[in-house]
């Protein structure tokens, strides 16, 4: 507020100096210029998105065909498909979501429905904020120290899934909390007034009403799992594997790491460009597809509420 006062003070001075009609005119002109610049900024951001997406789509679509999606890589990954990387990424999604989703929903229910304004609650909220801000490479180090080494899970699908689960836990908690907040208080009150216990009210009224929001948040965190590289780097992802992972203790291939390896350390970086573009596009399509699903769920839900 202090700043506010200062700004308006200098503004007043300007008005007094110029005064009259010309000031009015200047104000109009400067407004036009300012709005044009602000609009240009927004357009620039949109431009970034279009250029990045457009470039990858333009260069990637010719690489994608059924074979690319369903075949194993051949000849030191310079030919063939990316099937094992797709499978690995799907396994990672299943593994990490099946851990993080129930945990995240439970934590969010506690925080939104039960927790009072105590020190413990403050501590939990703070921990969630900080987990959300912890760099993914730090999660990777932690996964290496705890899951790979300390628990002895080794470099494996299990270690990577657990690490990624921790990474997306705060995201799921926050989005579930947001979904729970939008459930009207009246639903809870009228259920309680029917002699229904608190937990049953949450289970039968609050959670069902929040499900669209919870799904939206989860879908977005699936995108996050599919795209993250740093946390799996030292916890289980493999450069190349001749076969699919056969247990949770196997190493695996994953799309983002595959792209990274081909683009920076492959045996023939220039020759494999088409595969790189194709992999980038597949990854992008997965993530954008999930975003689209989230948007559609949100829209569907919004329309339903309008009845």
């Amino acid at each position: 507020m202090e700043l506010d006062a200062k700004v308006s003070e200098s503004g007043d001075k300007a008005i007094r100096v110029k005064g009259g009609l010309s000031m009015r005119f200047n104000a109009k002109i400067s407004e036009k210029i300012a709005f044009a610049l602000l609009g240009l900024s927004a357009l620039t951001v949109v431009g970034f998105v279009l250029v990045i997406l457009g470039y990858i789509i333009y260069n990637g679509y010719s690489a994608i065909n059924i074979g690319f999606l369903t075949e194993m890589p051949r000849l030191m990954m310079t030919e063939g498909g990316i099937y094992p990387a797709i499978v690995g990424t799907i396994y990672l999604i299943i593994g990490s979501m099946s851990i993080a989703l129930p945990m995240g929903i439970m934590a969010a229910v506690y925080l939104n429905e039960y927790a009072g304004e105590t020190r413990t609650t403050w501590l939990i909220e703070m921990a969630i904020n900080n987990l959300a801000g912890t760099p993914s490479v730090v999660f990777g180090l932690f996964g290496l120290a705890l899951f790979v080494k300390y628990f002895g899970f080794g470099s494996s699908l299990l270690s990577s899934s657990l690490t990624l689960a921790l990474l997306i836990l705060p995201v799921i908690i926050r989005s579930t909390e947001e979904a729970l907040i939008t459930v009207p208080k009246e639903y809870r009150e009228s259920s309680l007034a029917l002699g229904v216990s608190k937990w049953q009210t949450i289970r039968h009224v609050v959670l069902p009403a929040a499900i669209p929001g919870i799904i939206t948040g989860s879908v977005l965190s699936i995108g996050r799992v599919a795209g993250e590289t740093a946390p799996i780097l030292f916890t289980g992802v493999a450069y190349f594997l001749p076969r699919l992972p056969d247990s949770i203790y196997s190493q695996f291939m994953a799309l983002p790491y595959h792209l990274f390896v081909l683009a920076t350390a492959g045996t023939n970086i220039e020759k494999t460009r088409p595969i790189q573009y194709g992999t980038a596009l597949v990854l992008l399509l997965i993530v954008l597809g999930l975003n689209l699903v989230a948007v559609l769920i949100r829209r569907h839900y919004r329309n339903k509420l309008k009845i």
């Binding site: 009228s190 309680l192 007034a193 029917l194 002699g195 229904v196 216990s197």
Partner: peptide
């Protein structure tokens, strides 16, 4: 909870 079963609102 039992009370509210008997006293509706």
């Amino acid at each position: 909870v039992d009370l509210r079963k008997k006293v509706g609102m």
